Structure formats: structure tokens, C-alpha cells
Amino acid sequence: MKLRNINPLGAVDLPLVGRVLEPGEVFEVDDTLAGRAPSTSVDEDSGEEVHDLGSGLLAQVGNFEQAGAKDPLGPPVPTEEWSKAQLLEAATRRGIDVAPTAKKADIVAALTADATPAPEEDQ
């Protein structure tokens, strides 16, 4: 499974993969190590909420997310249809430094640029 480092501290040393992960870096791990994100569901019999704390790296909300997964704040690619608060939250979660006074178009541009893969260098 492919995951992305969204740790707000930036680069993080992850001994489980044997290296330092850069901010926003996508890396691959097996499904067991990736685990699952925390979730809440309703028990059909009792009607009570059941909280699953998750497991593995995906249980570390705010540190790792599944790469290519739909952003829970809106459509997969940020657009000006998102509220400014949603855009700022997405930028924060992805480790992108954006001023709270920035215009929505500028925040979308920063988020879109961050999602664009870097061009491959000729060797």
C-alpha cells in the first residue's frame, strides 16, 4: 500500500522502512504495516457507537495518509469550491506553509503544486 508522510514536523525517521521520509513523500509498505485508519461505526444490535482506534501507520492520524485516497475534506483535487477553512486545513495536514490571509486561489495553487510529481531528471 502506498502512504504519504503528512507529519506536521516535516521529515521523519521511520525505522520500520529503514530511512528518513521527506515531507509529502509517498512510500510503499505492506498492508499489515500500513494498517487501517481509526473509524467509528454504529453497532446494529445495540445502536451504540463503536470506536476502532485503527492499527499500524494509518492509526497515526496527522502523520500518514493513504496516497491517492480521496481527501476527506472534499473532492480529490482541491478547488475554489472548497471553503477557505477546508483549504487551510488541507494545507496544514500536508505540511504546506500558507498564510491565513492568503487568497483561495493561492491556496489551491499551493495544494495543486504540492500534488504535482516532480519532473524526472535526465541522467
Rank of each mutant, 00 (worst) to 15 (best):
M1A: 10
M1H: 11
K2Q: 15
K2S: 12
R4G: 00
N5H: 00
N7Q: 07
L9H: 15
G10S: 07
L14Q: 02
P15R: 03
L16T: 06
L21D: 00
G24R: 01
E25A: 01
V26K: 10
F27E: 08
F27I: 04
F27W: 14
D30F: 09
D31W: 10
D31M: 12
T32Q: 14
L33A: 01
L33K: 06
L33Q: 07
G35D: 08
G35P: 04
G35T: 12
G35M: 11
G35I: 15
R36P: 04
A37D: 05
A37Y: 03
P38E: 04
S39R: 05
S39V: 00
T40Y: 10
S41I: 01
D43F: 09
D43H: 08
D43A: 08
E48G: 07
V50I: 14
V50D: 13
H51F: 15
L53I: 12
L53Q: 14
L58H: 08
L58Y: 03
A59M: 02
Q60W: 14
V61I: 15
G62H: 12
G62S: 14
F64P: 08
Q66S: 04
A67M: 06
A67W: 03
A69Q: 10
A69H: 02
A69V: 02
G74R: 04
G74Q: 08
K84D: 00
Q86R: 09
Q86A: 08
E89G: 07
E89C: 09
E89K: 12
A91R: 00
R93A: 07
R94Y: 03
R94I: 00
G95T: 01
G95Y: 05
I96Y: 00
D97G: 01
V98C: 02
V98H: 04
A99K: 03
P100I: 07
K104D: 05
K104W: 04
A105T: 05
D106K: 03
A109G: 09
A110T: 04
L111P: 02
T112C: 11
D114V: 10
D114S: 14
A115I: 07
P117E: 07
E121K: 02
